[in-house]
Write a protein that binds this DNA or RNA. Structure first.
Lengths: 245, 245
DNA sequence: CCGCCTATTATGTCCGGACTTATTGACGGC
DNA sequence: GCCGTCAATAAGTCCGGACATAATAGGCGG
């Protein structure tokens, strides 16, 4: 099939496919690393990198001398985190900052950011460009898509000193609402055609979708969704949505 | 600072220590992989394995050509999962089964299991030995410690067929109560002296503590806590506690 | 001074080899 | 038949090398 160019990702994807198709049954052992090396014409080291990826996804487990066992036909579909503690929010804020930075870079590279550059310079958050979804064709459920190119320059210390304010502030800056609740979903997804085309990926390729949901006291919901490569190697796209409360 | 024998774990632990001590400041770059190789007398590949571990813990991030940046002085303190979906429970059950098996092995090796062997053979769950905490010195908050040596022989298919029954069954077998809610906490910890002494670890060494909490409809709480090596390499100890509802 | 181009550099990927270790299964002794 | 021993095996760890790639820094020309 297609792939990310790197050999081990190719192998990982192929094995994932075969497991999903049932050619390697759940509970059975994969061929030995040496045999996989031969089969794919890659070094054992490369095959091991691929197996590392599958292991990280929970598809296989390995035991010395026994072999590599298929644990599941597909990665867990969904993995929910509720973010309540101060530590959660710090971690969350940092992860989100990285996501946004990556996305900003990708978008900038593709010159999408130039389509319309709007400056929302504020104390902490600096959004250097936004691309709004087509206002003429509003989403049936009332979402508005926003492609964000943002950075949190100089924010590090502030976040550490007052954790939790980061995301709230983003929402406040953009919508003037105070965040009352935060939730995060992570689930398996495939790359939508639109995103794949815009960013150079392959439509239908497996991906992780992270949806972060913020609600204010009135019940209005703000959502940021990011599409990630399963192995977490890069961020492909990010959208900021808004649901009128 | 010694360690698990493997070179990359040694290096990872040393780097973790130096980061925690502030000898590598948060936000700064680590020495290049080549320099670390020279410094530790290991191959670049081995150093990269160590950095992989740190990256997995969220301590560092890497960018091509730029270097390896220190992101945090220590791993996230806490990470909470709520277990609601069927998939969660399957994954949870499997993880717990592995934990218990590992613990059983460790306990058996140390001949603690022989102190008193009580057989609770039932349909699925087989607990071959239990060691109860000192009943004469009850825990102030009403917990009872139980060291468990258990196996789920032949349970694989049953669990797959009816996921979620595994833990519930354990609780039912031991206490005759039906589980209504499950929650899991993962947090950073250090090895308590008692556990370290009993199992050969180093007191104060960094560890992960996983606490799994089951509640029945009446509000009684059952807790299983496991102490894990941060990198997830082995289970050090496990205790089953009970709080009278 | 600005912008383009190029060289440098540190990580990313991959190779092929070697030795170690844990588990299994078979063999042989009791 | 039971148990301990030993060899075979497959993953775990590590080496040293090579080339690819991306981001930076510097040089060059306008």
């Amino acid at each position: 099939m297609r792939m990310s160019g790197t050999r081990y990702a190719e192998i990982a994807d192929d094995l994932t496919q075969q497991i999903a198709d049932g050619r390697f049954a759940v509970g059975s052992l994969l061929p030995t690393e040496l045999e996989l090396s031969a089969r794919y014409g890659a070094s054992r080291h490369t095959v091991r990198s691929a197996l590392d990826a599958l292991q990280g996804l929970g598809l296989v487990s390995r035991r010395k001398r026994v072999g590599t066992r298929v644990e599941a036909a597909r990665p867990p579909d969904r993995f929910r985190q509720s973010l309540t503690s101060v530590e959660d929010l710090v971690q969350f804020g940092e992860a989100h900052r990285r996501d946004v930075q990556d996305v900003a870079k990708v978008i900038a590279d593709r010159a999408l950011a130039d389509e319309l550059g709007c400056e929302l310079g504020r104390r902490w958050l600096r959004i250097s460009s936004l691309r709004w979804g087509d206002a003429a064709k509003p989403d049936p459920v009332g979402w508005t898509d926003v492609y964000v190119d943002a950075s949190y320059a100089g924010l590090g210390e502030a976040v550490r000193a007052a954790p939790g304010v980061l995301i709230s502030h983003l929402i406040e800056e953009m919508y003037g609402r105070r965040v009352a609740e935060i939730q995060q979903d992570v689930r398996a997804a495939t790359l939508p055609e639109a995103v794949a085309g815009a960013l150079g990926g392959d439509a239908g390729a497996p991906a992780l979708q992270i949806v972060r949901r913020y609600a204010d006291a009135a019940g209005a919901v703000f959502e940021i969704s990011s599409t990630l490569h399963p192995a977490g190697r890069f961020t492909l796209s990010s959208r900021l949505k808004r649901q009128a409360g």
